[in-house]
C-alpha cells in the first residue's frame, strides 16, 4: 500500500460531514439535492444515491479508515443515520 493511501487510524466516530464529503468525492452529488441540509434521516434514494453509490462509499471508508464493512453490515441501510451507526459500530470495535 502506498503512502498516498495511508489509512487514518484511531478515529472512532465518523460524522455526517465526513460522510457527505466522502459521498461527494466517491459518487458525486445530485444537482437537485442540498447535501448541506439536515439529511440524517433522508432516504439515500431521495438524496440521489443508489446502492452502487453506497457500495463505492463504503469501499472508500473501508480503505481510508482501515475497517471492514461487509455487505451484511450495509444490508437494509436506507439513511445516512443508519449508515453512520453501522460504520461507527465497526470503528469502535476496531479501536
Amino acid at each position: 500500500m502506498s503512502d498516498a493511501n495511508a489509512t487514518v487510524t484511531g478515529v472512532t466516530e465518523l460524522t455526517v460531514e465526513d460522510l457527505t464529503r466522502i459521498m461527494r468525492e466517491s459518487a458525486g452529488e445530485d444537482e437537485s439535492v442540498d447535501l448541506s441540509g439536515d439529511i440524517l434521516d433522508s432516504d439515500f434514494t431521495e438524496l440521489g444515491y443508489d446502492s452502487l453509490a453506497l457500495l463505492e462509499t463504503a469501499g472508500r471508508i473501508s480503505r481510508d479508515y482501515g475497517v471492514e464493512l461487509s455487505d451484511d453490515d450495509l444490508d437494509g441501510i436506507a439513511t445516512p443515520r443508519e449508515f453512520l451507526t453501522a460504520v461507527n459500530r465497526t470503528l469502535t470495535a476496531a479501536a
Binding site: 468525492e25 466517491s26 459518487a27 458525486g28 452529488e29 445530485d30 444537482e31 453509490a53 463505492e56
Partner: peptide, 8 residues
C-alpha cells in the same frame, strides 16, 4: 456532465 456521473 452531471456530478453524479463523473465518478462512474
Amino acid at each position: 456532465i452531471p456530478s453524479r456521473l463523473i465518478p462512474q
